[in-house]
């Protein structure tokens, strides 16, 4: 039957189960995971010039991760029952894993931060190494939450956890760049000129690293969309929803153009040595990733299942 001949005379609208709290939650865990990984890399490399970065990120990671679940609890219709998650856990539900990860990870993050600040290098390194998979899981599982909702075409792809992870790295680096730049500009006046030059260089390097991660992210997104467009009809609709439909302005305009292309140009183009441009790029990157969470979480639910 030709689709143009079909008229839906009556159906009902459905609630959007997952709202902005969830998108926000995904954004914050992403930020946290991203900064934690950078911190650990900095700690592991052990180079003196990385130390400030390692410290900033060590603090950021657990703080962000404590903000993240607040969103989750606020989203619960029965917030006072959050403890049911631990008492009545269900090992086939990704959320159960999430609840335990979300508990373990900040604790270890705090211990790690203490080690970093008290200059206990070895325990910090060990905790860091242990912590990276935890951080990856904590964020990766959010991708699984979406991917395991089988019927939602926009979510149900194997690439979803990876896309979430890579964009988490992007936004995490972006945040670190911003914080580091702010620190460099206003709060780090005591350092020597030489140290400041090194720090500056580091920020620029970090930003370039961010640009390469964005490329990886774009690659993943493009492949995901190509597959969507060629798979079954729900998937095609999902693809078209973000390419030409209601979510196109946010997806193409904010996530892709403002949040990916522009920052790449700013960071790799003629302004690559300009700290202001880099900071702008990093902020844009975060806006882009926030938009990505919105498009994925909300957009993914607007395709009706009935």
């Amino acid at each position: 039957m030709d689709n143009t001949d079909v008229n839906v005379v009556y159906s009902v609208q459905h609630q959007l189960p997952l709202v902005m709290y969830i998108a926000q939650y995904f954004f914050f865990t992403g930020l946290s995971a991203g900064s934690f990984v950078i911190s650990v890399v900095a700690t592991l490399l052990g180079r003196k010039e990385f130390k400030p970065i390692g410290r900033i990120t060590a603090v950021l990671a657990p703080i962000l991760l404590m903000i993240a679940p607040l969103n989750l609890i606020a989203d619960l219709g029965q917030p006072l029952r959050f403890w049911h998650l631990f008492l009545f856990y269900n090992w086939t539900s990704p959320i159960t894993y999430g609840s335990f990860l979300l508990t373990a990870y900040p604790i270890m993050g705090i211990v790690y931060a203490v080690m970093v600040f008290t200059n206990h290098q070895t325990p910090a390194k060990i905790l860091g190494i242990l912590g990276v998979p935890l951080a990856i899981s904590v964020h990766g599982y959010t991708g699984f939450i979406l991917a395991l909702a089988k019927a939602r075409a926009l979510w149900n792809t194997a690439a979803m956890p990876t896309i979430f992870l890579v964009s988490a790295m992007v936004s995490g680096i972006g945040l670190v760049v911003v914080v580091a730049a702010v620190r460099w500009k206003w709060f780090d006046k005591s350092a020597t000129e030489e140290q400041r030059a090194k720090d500056r260089k580091l920020i620029i390097q970090l930003a370039q690293f961010m640009a390469y991660t964005i490329m990886l992210d774009l690659f993943l997104i493009v492949s995901d969309i190509l597959v969507l467009l060629t798979a079954h009809s729900d998937a095609y609709q999902a693809g078209m929803l973000i390419l030409t439909g209601n979510f196109a302005p946010i997806f193409l305009g904010v996530e892709i153009f403002l949040g990916s292309i522009v920052p790449m140009v700013l960071v790799l183009g003629p302004t690559r040595k300009n700290l202001t441009a880099i900071v702008v790029a990093s902020i844009l990157v975060n806006i882009g990733v926030y938009a990505m969470r919105f498009v994925m979480v909300i957009g993914g639910q607007t395709i009706p299942l009935s």
Binding site: Q15, P17, L72, D75, G77, L85, K150
Partner: peptide
């Protein structure tokens, strides 16, 4: 027991 996380709604393929 339901905490109203709504994940079941997101997961059900039938919007019911």
């Amino acid at each position: 027991r339901c905490i109203c996380c709504k994940y079941c709604i997101a997961s059900c393929p039938y919007d019911v």
